[in-house]
Structure formats: C-alpha cells, structure tokens
Amino acid sequence: MLYHFLYPLSQEISAFNIFRYITFRSFAAFLIATIVSIVWGQVFINFMKKKQFGQVVRDDGPESHFKKAGTPTMGGVFIIGSIILTLLFTANFNSKPLLITLGVMLSYFVLGFLDDYLKVLKKNTDGVSAKGKLLWQFATAIIAGWIGVKYGVIDTELYSPFLKDSIINLHTIYILFVAFVIVGSSNAVNLTDGLDGLAIGPIVTSAATLGIIAYATGHKEISEYLFIPYIESAGELTVLAASIVGAGVGFLWYNSYPAQIFMGDVGSLSLGGALGTFAVMTKNELLFVVIGGIFVVEAVSVILQVGSYKLRKKRIFKMAPIHHHFELKGWPEPKVIVRFWIISIFLAILSIATLKMR
C-alpha cells in the first residue's frame, strides 16, 4: 500500500521514483521481511511457550524425535504475517499474478491454521480430515486457475524448460492440471517439513529461483531474448519471492537445529501452495519439478512406500518420507538437513541455467 502512496509523489519528489523499480522493492522486501520475521519470531515463540502450545510428535516416528514434543509450533503464522506486512510496504497490488498467488497462499494459510488449531490447541490429533483438506485445496486451486485463464493472466499452453515454443495446449483440462500442481506442491512441502530447518531451506531456494524467473517473465525484452512466455505484471512476483526468502531466513534463525519452533501446517501448506502458484503464474509448471526437486522426492517416497505396502506388504524405505529413511540409516539429523539443502541449491542453479537452453 505504501508503494501506491509514495510512487505517485515521484512527479513532485524525484527520490520516490526509485519505487518504480522491482529490483529495489525486492531488495527492500527481503530486508524488511528478514528483520520483521526475526523480531516477531521471538515474540511469537515466547507467547507459544507461555501458553504451552507445543508440537505433538507422531509415536511411530524416529525415537530421536520424541524429545521434540512440546516445542512451540505454528511458526507459519509469523512467516506469513511478515510476508504480508512487507508487501504492504513494497508491493504493487495492481498485479493480477501477485493477487492470485496471494489469494492461494492466504486460503491455504487459513486451512493450515485451522488444522494446527485443532491439533495443538484443541488436542485433536486428527485435525482437519484428509478429505476436508483436499476439498479445500482443490477448490482454491481450481478457482485460481479459472481466474488466471478467464481474465487472460495466463494461457492454457504447456511449456517445456528446454524448448522455445509450447509443447501442447491443454485447453479446459489445463485448469485441472493447475489444481494438481498447486495442491501437489502444498502437500509435498508439508511432507518435507519433518526435520529442523529441512523444509524452509528448499522453500527459500525455490522462492529465490522462481523470483528470478518471474522477473524475466514479466520483462518484455528479457522474455523475448530468452524465448520464455511474457506475462504482464508477473515481475511483481519477484517482490513476493523476496519477501518469502526474507521471512524464511528469519524463521530459520529459530528453526535451525535444534529448533526453537516448528513451521506447522499453517506455514507448510500456505508456502507450498504459493510456490505451486508461482510456477503456474510464470508458466513453469514442468520446470518446477526440478526447482522443487526435494519436495517431489519426498512426496514420491511416500507414494511408493504406501503403494508398495498395499500391493506387496513390503516397505521400500525404512520409513517415509525419505528423510526419515536416512535418519534410520544412521545419518545425524543435521547431516540429512544440510545435504538436502545442497541438493536444493544445485537444482535451483540448474533450473536457472535452463533459461539459456531454449
């Protein structure tokens, strides 16, 4: 909102002209979100400790996790809060891609908050039912996809990260495809959030990567040079990406091993949904498989584990998601986390490199 107040004043005060630049507002967003997240995070942790609202640890998980019971959770509240507060200072809300992405993130925030509220505050270990979650997630994602196509924000073409032109037009099926991308991303991030700092690392690298791509997608000359689809106002997603990175770094200040607070579904569902919508709004649904490779592997490990047990009564991994498999193989938790971060950084750089392969 501050952008909409200050930038018009640039005609009278030339210094305010700097607000027109997405790059400046993105750097400012990162700094603001980081500071707000760190400051707010400490206040939030103290509040959760005072109220004794702690994490409920699954009794079938690794024994080393039992000691984490009671650690404050729902850290996603101050992550998303920091992002929204930052955007009020730095974002241009005339951007349709930004508004659609925010809409998905806030909808999933409400869902995650309700789920955590039932689990942590009401001591209901089931939280929102699995069917209820999927219904909410798919309804939100389908609406987002429909709005995007209906109002010409995005088309129904599907693009490959290695080809200049689209590979297929999905027409009306595209909206359903969009829903699977967004819902899949949300749940994959949720599954990844099982170790101290494990999920927020790839969230930060994925957001940074998608932010760079969004800037190129929303810049007509750059998009033409790189042979990627040009999407009007998509560059504003870079400001959102910078806010996510900053808030994520602030959260990691407290979530790094040993964690003082956990993200909770309120954070993982909303941030995962935002990343999936990012991919859709920049037409990088297929490339997102590489960008969010860690999330994909975590989700696939669960699918394979469940499928194998139902069909063969045998497990492929010692435990799923796969990060628990490595824990049970004897890897210390910090080693699992850092190695997954390294892979995430590698995949981020590889994804950016594909921009020159078209």
Rank of each mutant, 00 (worst) to 15 (best):
H4A: 14
F5L: 14
P8M: 10
S10L: 07
S10E: 08
Q11M: 06
E12R: 12
F16G: 07
N17A: 14
Y21I: 02
I22Q: 02
F27T: 03
F30M: 09
V39W: 11
W40A: 15
V43I: 13
V43D: 02
F44I: 04
F44C: 04
M48A: 11
K51Y: 05
F66D: 02
K67Q: 09
G76F: 04
V77D: 07
I84V: 14
L85E: 02
L88Q: 09
F89K: 00
T90H: 00
K96F: 15
L99H: 07
V120P: 11
A139N: 07
T140M: 10
K150C: 00
K164S: 15
D165I: 10
I168G: 01
N169W: 00
H171I: 10
T172V: 09
S185R: 06
T192C: 12
G194Y: 12
A199H: 07
G201R: 08
Y215D: 00
I222Y: 14
G248Y: 00
G250M: 11
L252F: 13
W253Y: 15
W253N: 11
S256G: 12
Y257L: 04
Q260P: 12
M263K: 05
D265H: 08
L269F: 03
L269R: 09
G272H: 07
G276P: 09
T277K: 04
T277Y: 05
E285N: 06
L286R: 03
I291V: 15
G292M: 05
G293L: 06
V296H: 10
A299S: 14
V300Q: 06
I303H: 02
L304W: 09
L311C: 06
F326N: 06
P334K: 05
K335H: 10
V338E: 01
W341C: 03
W341E: 04
I345N: 03
I352T: 13
T354H: 06
R358T: 13
R358N: 15
